[in-house]
Write a protein that binds this DNA or RNA. Sequence first.
DNA 1: ATGAAAGACCGATGCTAGGA
DNA 2: TCCTAGCATCGGTCTTTCAT
Length: 297
Amino acid sequence: MRISKQKHRKAERIELVRLKREQREQTLCFSSRPFVLCGLPVRQLPKGQLLYERRNGHFVLQVTGHPDYGVPFGQDRMVPIFLATLAVQQQSRTIRFRSASEMLETFGMNKGGKEYRRLVAAFERTFGATIFFGTDTLTSKAKIVHRARFNFFSEARVWYNRANEDCVLGERYENVIVLSDEFFEEVTAHPIPTDLEAVKLLSSAPAVLDLFVWLSYRCFTAGAKERIPIFGPFGLVQQLGAVEYGRLRKFREKLQQWLSAIRRVWPECPAKLDGDGMYLWVDHATAIQPVVPSVAE
DNA sequence: ATGAAAGACCGATGCTAGGA
DNA sequence: TCCTAGCATCGGTCTTTCAT
C-alpha cells in the first residue's frame, strides 16, 4: 500500500499530538466561547448571503459579513483563535505581533504568497464582520434576548492596510490590533484552552476542528455522562457550521466520520453516538492534561 | 411478507490546502 | 505557478431495520 507524503506527515503529527498529551507537554492556544459553542460556516456561503446564525442551547451566534468581503468561513476560524490567544497571553486589549508570518508559523501553515493572500482575505472577512453573541431565554410569556453586538477590533494597524504610511526605513514594523471591549471581555472572562498542536493538525479540516475544540471543552465541563440532541432546535445541527443536508442521515454519517477523525488525535475522547443516532453522549474527559510540575532544572 | 425509512458504502464534484 | 491531495457535499444504490 502506498502512503502519500501528506498522509505520512499527517500521521507523524497525530503521533506528536498524542505523545505531547501523554507526556503532559502540550502547548496551549485559546479560543473564545462564541466560536466554540457555535461554528462559523465550513464552506463559503452562497453569493449574497451576509447573515449567518448558529445556536447552541440558548446561546446564539450571529455573524454579519461585510458586503465587500462576506462572512468568514473555513480556515478563517484560525483568526479568532489567533486573536484570542494573543489577548490571553498579552493580557491586554492592545495586542501586538511582529508579522503575518508569525501567525502562519504558529499554526504550522506554509508561507508562500498564496498563504499570505489567503491570510489577508481571512483578516478582511473577520474584521469586516459584526458579531452578535448572547442568550435568549424563553420565560413563561416573553422571549428575553440578551445580546452583545460587537466587532473584533476597534483599531488596527496591520501589515496589509498600512501601505506607504510611516514606512520609515529600518524601523521595525509591529502589527497592532486593539480589540473591541466586547471581544476582549468575552475572551478574558471565558478563555477556552485548546491544544495548539491539534489545532495545527486540523487547521485544514474546519468541521473536524470545530467539533474537536467544542468536544474538548464540553467533555471537560461535563460532570458525568450527558446526552446532547443531534437534531431539533437545540441539536448539533443548529450548532455546527456544516450545511443543512438534504438527507438527515447524511449529517449523522458525517458526524461519525468527524468523530473517528477526532479519535485519531484524541483516542480517549468519550463522545459517542447512541444506538438510535438521535443523541451524542459525552462524559467527563480532558483533552488537555495539566502540565506536570517540572523538576527544578 | 412488504414497503418505507435509515444505514452503509461508493463515486463524482467543486473547492481549498499543501507541496514541489 | 502548477499539480496533487484532501475536505465537504451530494446523489446513487444496496443492505438492514422496523412497523404494519
